[in-house]
Design a protein around this nucleic acid. Structure first.
Lengths: 199, 199, 199, 199
DNA sequence: CATGAATGAGAGTTCATTCAT
DNA sequence: CATGAATGAACTCTCATTCAT
């Protein structure tokens, strides 16, 4: 009978989970979900093999927790950054800047999210899509649609524009993405003004 | 064993490889590299399990061959489509249209490429990057830079613009990509004109 | 630490053991020895996981205690029931009635004993055989042999008859045993009179 | 493409299965289902660990095959022995003699069946009950009921008598069963005539 | 004496790879 | 060159047991 579940206990549990999430993020980002070794994660977190299972009931559950954790942290940061801007154009710029800063600060997390969203594992993909739904819908509604209603954005298909922005945003951390990361302001300008020289 | 292989022999070998590549593409796209089962591939290709090893020395080598094959077929199609267009803007449009048509015609291939380029497996990523280098540099040189030299494109960072176009292009087949695929002409317009309404 | 334990202390310990034995009986009966989870037992007894080890040094020891406990309770009940009967035939009837009543009242216990006595685990089997020796020898001596000496029973091999009765008795709770349980009087008659119609 | 699945191949497969079934019988009988180690079985059969899975898809399936194999062999032997006898009484005697001879010849098989039928594992029990249904219904119909219709057997509850005979039969290989096995004729007489001396 | 997080050996199962036929 | 049985390392997950608190 747990006598009162001291705050101490809870803090220890939270810290153990933190260590596991961090170790898991590293492993999943480096090896992919299928390639990750759950015992390595446990050992990397400073536990014995099998101790993960005292905190998460399965590899999948641990993975879900990792993705959820990333999405929450990134969402908070990014939406906070963008929300305070008065115009849709500025929100776009801040959105990209905050997101790409996150990718720069936590490259493993960014890589893992992209790998999951564009990977073959349907279950994992659904999970990540669900976790990133708030960000995606923020872009579509508060940036693209808002700019169109305000009259400063062209009336292109909002979904199309949203998908394009999300693609840039999510790929800003991998492969061909280095220039995006290095220059979020220019990326925003590119989206706003397009490639063609104005008349 | 005749040293001089009959052309017949070679054709049979080529056809066997074709069957294996097709089966492997399906399996890798559906399960990811780590999740793919090489014996299933062999069986799906109409061979016994283990027969892959008469044609490819390892799972990795088979995977590399699959990626190489996709890149070659896609490159041929896309560059062919784009090269005949006289202006950089038209080349961009045709490039996107041809690429997204490829993604529509061979969704498994498109998904596999994106998953590999944005996935966690560093070795596989390097492989795919190398295979897609021609496409990427075509975009940068023959579209972005050419348009700038011609005077019709803004002088934004060419690498940045190239990366953005490749991101759109590659993600046009997955996750948030559905609207892109459905509407390549609008996607090209978005890249050319940007979001902001002209003055 | 007072050497002289207060009676209070001892009562508490006895009650804790009781709870553990009851919980263990349920788990062992439901899952078998190998399949039983000792932490589940501890929790089901209202303790934390691991607390069993304050009362029993190992899973095996706990198991032995469970079997011993059942044998003791069943033996007391059954022998009490049978001992007061004046003739061997009546003792047989009461023996079966009491035993099958026990099986009806404590089905988990009955099932566990049969599973142990007829199970694969040699160590457990030896343990249970030892615990049930008193019952077995009661049947052989006080029922079969006594009846033969009295002149009312045929002089069949006493051990054989004893084994047959014990088999019926122990299987009266499982598998094909339902009719036995339902009808102890008829079972006794069957043993006494046999199948063949008297001349 | 298997060219013609030579009889050779099939013989080899059958022989491999035989080795595995034998090894599995030994392990399951000695350790119980839950306690058995499937890699030990594979090694004991002369294969590497994991090779069982080329022949049976799971531990449970292997177990089912073992039980099915025993039931088939025992059923053939026992029913053959009993069926040729003209009267129900003789069928009973032969049934017991054949069954107990089987138990003597294949003690591990007999022990495993009893352990399964009286064990805690519900799934395994159902399996074994199903496999032994033919024997059980033979006893009830062709022995007990037939004897009653013929007029030579008392009209006791047929199910009760059948269950009693099956219990004796199945327990003839364990625990208190040694005398039964040693003396099947006397066991049959006991069932037919009962314990009580005729008047 | 109770707790329950931690341990780590060991379980069932998968599968890339080999090789005798 | 095709076959497919065999291999055995490696995986995820379980759980009896320990011990600091």
């Amino acid at each position: 009978m747990p006598r009162y579940k001291s705050a101490d206990r809870e803090r220890l549990v939270a810290e153990a989970r933190r260590r596991l999430l961090d170790a898991a993020l590293g492993e999943f980002a480096a090896q992919g979900y299928a390639g990750a070794n759950i015992n390595h994660i446990s050992l990397a977190a400073g536990f014995a093999q099998g101790t993960v299972y005292n905190y998460y009931p399965s590899k999948r559950a641990l993975f879900a927790a990792v993705i959820g954790d990333i999405a929450a942290r990134q969402g908070e940061l990014v939406l906070q950054g963008a929300a305070s801007a008065p115009t849709p154009a500025m929100r776009l710029e801040r959105f990209l800047a905050a997101g790409l800063a996150f990718a720069q600060g936590f490259p493993a997390a960014a890589r893992l999210v992209a790998a999951t969203l564009y990977g073959a594992d349907a279950e994992a993909r659904a999970l990540a899509q669900h976790a990133y739904e708030p960000l995606a819908s923020y872009v579509t509604k508060e940036i693209v649609l808002a700019g169109q209603q305000e009259g400063t954005f062209r009336t292109v298909d909002a979904e199309l524009a949203g998908a394009a922005i999300m693609a840039l945003y999510l790929c800003g951390c991998t492969a061909h993405g280095a220039p995006l990361r290095a220059n979020p302001r220019a990326a925003a300008a590119l989206i706003l003004e397009g490639l063609r020289r104005g008349t």
